[in-house]
Design a protein around this nucleic acid. Structure first.
Lengths: 202, 202
DNA sequence: AACTAAACTGACCGTCCGGTCAGTTCTCCG
DNA sequence: CGGAGAACTGACCGGACGGTCAGTTTAGTT
């Protein structure tokens, strides 16, 4: 059993700092978060933060990766639950919009990950690319099933993700919340009638 | 005639600084551009920059607004050239992807404007919202024509913009350029079969 | 050439922030 | 209770950056 008492305490502290980091990112945006902000939010001194994390970047990276795990779990469940492609899409859309509504802090992180301008590099965050890869696999499976056009799967995944993301962002920007079902239906229709094969009557 | 010699020179200098700013933003991203970077790129001293602009933020705002004017001209032409909704969409998609391919510096600016996390605020840049407003008007006109579902027009405009933007981003991230026509066709199909009314055979 | 005003420069200032570490407080065991 | 080590603190350091301004160069006029 490697879980000694010290390790439990350490994990607890790390979690508290990650939680604080997520809340602050939600308020100030990824680029404008300072280590002092995170420490204040967690109710500890700045120096203490460096007992548990190597650097500012380390905090934010770990916060992202950790948060993404639960999110990925939900999306994977939505994808894997069977049914037609349209049903899977609706589940994915609903899962994401629900999750984003509930956890606006995480959504800000998600946005920061999708944003390629944070650093010098053009690549997005690894966790975001994993997300795209899962959507790509879902679309490829549907295509093998004859439910989807032969459009390039990765590009389709990218536009699906961007559609959901930007509607979630719009929901967040609006003061008066729109009914979730309305947006889910709209996005599902937009996506499916865009990439699902339409059954022509012969 | 208000255009004195001094004003011509001043305009020329301002333009040089804006051009420099755009190139630097393309390399380092909006948030990481310093005034020194811009001055170096323009081949002048930092102090000189402040003879023509009030502040760093002033430079970037003016650079954005100015750059958007030419872009808006092209998009407006694409929207206004008549034809079916699908044709108009194809023209808009092509105009944007072409423009972004040619002027990657501008595209980085465009991304920064679409990005809501730059400041504390959640609102996007005014020029970007204007862009969305024009797409919204186009979709509403098509709806009045019976060419488009009665989906909420602004949301449709948002997802159209996000679709084009993310494909442009993907093109930029790929080393080997894909044929423009291929991506134009893909995006046009994705958009139109998503929000255009499909003519059922009765 | 001499003079002047406008244009330009870059060293400098105040501020902010990531990261450090000497000193303080807490915890736990003998 | 006492002491040792772990946990924690926040003042401090160095570097970066936005913005300023006294001094220098340039351009135009007589």
């Amino acid at each position: 059993m490697p879980t000694t008492k010290e390790e439990v305490v350490e994990q607890f502290r790390c979690q508290a700092i990650r939680d604080a980091a997520m809340r602050v990112v939600a308020r100030k945006g990824y680029d404008h978060v300072t280590v002092q902000d995170i420490a204040d939010e967690a109710g500890i001194a700045k120096g203490t933060v460096y007992l548990y994390f190597k650097s500012r970047e380390d905090i934010l990276q770990k916060t992202m990766s950790f948060s993404f795990e639960e999110f990925h779990g939900r999306i994977a469940a939505a994808i894997g639950a069977g049914g037609t492609f349209a049903e899977a899409v609706e589940r994915v859309v609903r899962a994401q919009l629900e999750y984003f509504d509930e956890r606006q802090e995480f959504f800000r992180l998600y946005l920061a990950m999708a944003e390629p301008l944070g650093d010098r590099r053009l690549k997005k965050h690894a966790a975001y690319r994993t997300h795209i890869a899962r959507l790509t696999a879902m679309i490829e499976a549907a295509r093998a099933n004859g439910e989807v056009w032969d459009a390039p799967a990765e590009r389709a995944a990218i536009v699906v993700a961007s559609t959901i993301r930007d509607i979630a962002l719009q929901r967040l920007a609006e003061k008066a919340a729109r009914p979730l079902d309305e947006d889910v239906a709209f996005v599902r229709d937009y996506i499916c009638r865009g990439i699902a094969i339409h059954q022509e009557k012969s």
